[in-house]
Structure formats: C-alpha cells, structure tokens
Design a protein around this nucleic acid. Structure first.
Lengths: 121, 121
DNA sequence: GATACAATCCAATTGTGGTTGAAATATTGC
DNA sequence: GCAATATTTCAACCACAATTGGATTGTATC
C-alpha cells in the first residue's frame, strides 16, 4: 500500500517544516558551518541551535565534525547523499504528471459506497 | 534578506508536514476527489477531512468545485500550477549544487564574531 | 590541578496545531 | 413550508514540539 519512501518523506517534511531549521540549512548550504556564527547570524541561543541541529542530524540531513586543531569547535555540514534522496523523493511524490482526472465512483449519480455502484438516478 | 520564495516554502512545508494531509494529496492525485470516498478510504470523520482540505485550499494546493447536478457534493482537485511552483521552489532550495565548502571566518584561528555585524543591529 | 570556553543535556514552561463532538450552513426533494 | 443529505464551522480538549534557563560534559590553556 504505502511505499516506505512516503513515510520517510513525511518524517523529513516534519523536520523541515520549521522556519529556523530552514534558515540553518540555508546557511549550512552557503558555507556557514560554525555553531557560534550561526548563533550570531540567526540571533538564537546556542543551546537552541544545538537542539535544532540535533533534530537535523537525527534525520540524516546534516553531519557533524570536530575541529582538528581545537576539538571544542564543531562544524556541521549537509549530508549530500541524503539531500539528493530527499530531493528525488519529493519530486517523485509531487510530480504533476501523477495527477489523474477524477474517477466518478462517488457522487449524485453513483452510490457513495465503492461496492454497490449500481443505482438509478 | 529573505527572498519571498523561502517564506512561501516554509509555509508550504508546514502544511505538508502532516501524514493525513499527505495521504489526502496522494488520493487526490490518484483521482479520488469525492469527499465521502476520502472519508471511507482514510477512515476519518468528515469534519476532519474538511478541516485538512481547508488548510490545503488556503495554501493554494487544492481547488474546490461543486457538482453541477447536485451542489451538495463538492470535489477537490490538485492546483497544478501551484504544485509545479512548489516542486520548483523545493528543488531550487534543496539543490545539492548549492552546497558550498566551509568558509572559515570562525573557529580557533579567527575571531568568532564577524566584524561587519558589530556596527549595525 | 584549576580555570575558561564551546557545546550539549536536562527539566520545566509555553504555544501551536490536530482532534473531537455538536451546532450551523447550504442545497435538494417532498 | 418541512425533512433529509453533504459539508462546514465552532468551541473545547489534548498532545507534541519549540523555547527557556540552568546544569553538565568535554577540551584547551595556564
């Protein structure tokens, strides 16, 4: 019935449907990956940024990496394969070519139950 | 600062991030547009379906049309132009080609706050 | 070891939005 | 007019997630 990609898409959409997470993703794509700079540009508390990044990381959309010189700093990056999978799943689900004309098995002429479609007007 | 497409995308994602609305859209695309048959297939109360369809309609994703013979029946359909706009906006925002490498203006070597952001705000 | 810093985790609060049931609206047939 | 059908609207309830402030972890410097 429901292919697993639909569930994955629903989960991804729930993660993405947050303005601040969209802004974070937007900055990550633009090359801003330092946590503190994200905080200054978005005017958000660092713990809040950490929370949203955790949600994005658990969804597999971003990856985390610690600085080689000073491990206190962490850098976040877009997970490119999963982003491509997200894009493909979304475009496949919302493809306008999937739109089918109305199949009138319900309405004033037909019965509302799909079983007995034989009814006189 | 924020292009209007991003704001629109955030609104659309918030509307789409609902499993039942995704199911409704899926059925609408497959050609099932009668309200009562949506209720039987999704096992939802009609007022709940009406609510979700109202959200989708206000977002411009579905259109409503009353039956020509008996105006008590209403049929819902996908708004194809807006669906194409949604698809285009989404793919443009989440295009993997947009991913830029990290720009290290923050970290152990550099100061954490960008100098241009100190003057304003 | 002690201190400072970046980031995270935790508990509590708040706010938004889905769900529910009943009433209201609209239209058709008698 | 009245009754019946299809849908919508309304108000209340409930659950989950974002936010907040403080405490904690991990790391580097002195």
């Amino acid at each position: 019935m429901e292919q697993p990609t639909t569930h994955q898409l629903a989960h991804w959409l729930k993660v993405l449907a947050e303005p601040r997470r969209l802004q974070i993703l937007n900055l990550l794509m633009a090359g801003v990956q330092c946590n503190c700079e994200l905080g200054t540009q978005l005017d958000m508390a660092p713990n809040l940024i950490s929370h949203h990044l955790s949600v994005l990381r658990k969804a597999g959309l971003v990856e985390v990496e610690r600085d080689a010189v000073d491990a206190r700093w962490v850098y976040y990056a877009i997970n490119r394969p999963n982003l491509e999978a997200l894009n493909a799943t979304f475009t496949a689900f919302f493809d306008p070519a999937r739109i089918q004309p109305r199949q009138p098995n319900c309405g004033p002429q037909t019965a509302c139950e799909p079983d007995d479609a034989v009814t006189t007007r």
